[in-house]
Structure formats: C-alpha cells, structure tokens
Simulated assay, not measured.
Amino acid sequence: MKTQKDTFEQQQQKQLIFATFVFMLLGVGLELYLLSHYEDTLQRIPLFCIGSAILVLIILLFKRSSFVITLFKVILGCTALSGIYGSFLHLRANYEFEMEMKPNARDWDLFIESLSGALPTLAPGSMIVLALIGYSYILLLKQKQ
C-alpha cells in the first residue's frame, strides 16, 4: 500500500524530470539556433525533433492518451537517432578535413584527429541524453499513484 509520502516523492520525481527535460529542450534548441545549425536540411533535423518534442509535451500536459504517449515515444526515438546520425556526420566531415590536411596519415590517426576536429563529434550525443530524459518522464507518468 502506497503512503502519502510515496505519492509526494513520485510527484517530486516527475517534476524534477519534467523540469530537466524542458531545460534540456530549450537549452539545446537555443544553442543550435545560436550556432546557425539550420543552414542545411540535415542540420534542421535536431531542431525539428526538439520542436516536435515541445509540441507533443504540451499536448501531453493536457491530454494523456495512449496515442499521445506513443507519438511522444516515436519523437524521442527519432531524437535519439538524430544524435547518432549527427555524431556520424560530424565525424565524417572532420575525417574528410583531416584527410585533406594529412593525406599520408594512417586511418587510425585520422580517426583520432577527427574526434577532436572542428565539428564537435560527441556534441550530438546530447540529443540521445535528451531522449533518455524524455523517456524517463514517460516511465514516471506510467507509475501507479
């Protein structure tokens, strides 16, 4: 049997995860905007994912149906995939640049140099973290009160 303390703690957890998720959505979205990460179609993918997540999150606050939760999960999945794909694109662009700069270098050396290249290779990983925080919020919503 759940106590009133358990319910209060669950509510606090939901609020903390929700606030963290909103903070990350706005922070990452603003950073991408300030970096002009919208000049190319592929660069707009994370902005689209963030915008979609914000929209569905607002809907979720007013109507918690299985369809909206499923839609939110799909958007979170796309958000995570955009992080993986973004890391690949950043790494590939850095690798190509390093190949031009050091044509005689070995593949492994080029790869290591590419990780710390002009484009931050691991920065798109924040989209994966964003998706995981959003999914944590869904799990907390599904807890019995």
Rank of each mutant, 00 (worst) to 15 (best):
L110M: 07
S36N: 15
S126N: 03
K144I: 13
M1F: 12
F62P: 01
I54Y: 11
I84C: 12
Y135M: 05
F48P: 00
Y33W: 11
D40M: 15
F67H: 06
L34N: 04
T20C: 10
L71S: 15
Y85W: 03
Q10V: 08
Q11R: 14
K144P: 12
V28Q: 04
Q11P: 02
V22E: 04
Q10E: 07
L89D: 11
Y95T: 00
Q145T: 10
L55R: 13
V74G: 08
L122C: 05
I58P: 13
L61H: 04
S82W: 06
K142R: 08
I69S: 15
L130Q: 10
L132E: 06
I75S: 10
I54A: 15
T79W: 10
L71Q: 03
D40Q: 13
E98Y: 13
I58M: 12
A19S: 14
D40F: 12
A80M: 06
Q11Y: 09
Q12W: 04
Y95I: 08
K5G: 02
A118K: 06
I133A: 14
I112M: 09
P46G: 08
L76H: 07
G134I: 05
F72C: 06
I58R: 12
I54Q: 04
S126F: 05
G86F: 07
Q11N: 13
N94F: 14
F88G: 11
L91T: 04
I112T: 03
E100K: 09
G117H: 01
T41N: 06
T121N: 12
Y135T: 00
V129C: 02
T3M: 01
L141R: 03
K14W: 02
Q12S: 10
L32K: 09
L119V: 02
E31T: 10
Q10C: 04
A80C: 04
L122K: 08
V68F: 10
I69G: 06
L81N: 01
I17M: 07
L47E: 15
I138G: 05
R106H: 06
L42R: 00
Y33P: 02
Y135P: 00
I133L: 06
L119N: 02
Q12T: 13
E9Y: 08
Y33S: 08
Q145F: 14
G29R: 00
Q10R: 11
T121Q: 07
E100P: 02
S66K: 11
F23G: 09
E113V: 03
L132Y: 05
A53I: 01
F48K: 03
F97P: 01
L16Q: 11
L110I: 10
F8N: 04
Q43H: 08
R64V: 14
L34T: 10
Y135C: 00
I133C: 13
F62W: 09
L89M: 13
K14V: 04
I133S: 07
E31R: 06
Y135G: 01
A123E: 05
M1Q: 12
N104S: 14
V28R: 11
V28C: 07
Y33R: 06
M99R: 15
F111I: 07
Q4E: 09
V129Y: 02
F23M: 09
L42G: 01
F48M: 09
P120V: 00
M24W: 06
S52D: 07
G51Y: 00
A53K: 00
G86P: 01
A105I: 03
K142H: 01
D107Y: 10
Q143W: 01
L32M: 12
L16D: 11
M99L: 15
V129S: 05
Y135H: 09
I59Q: 01
Q15L: 06
P46E: 11
L60A: 14
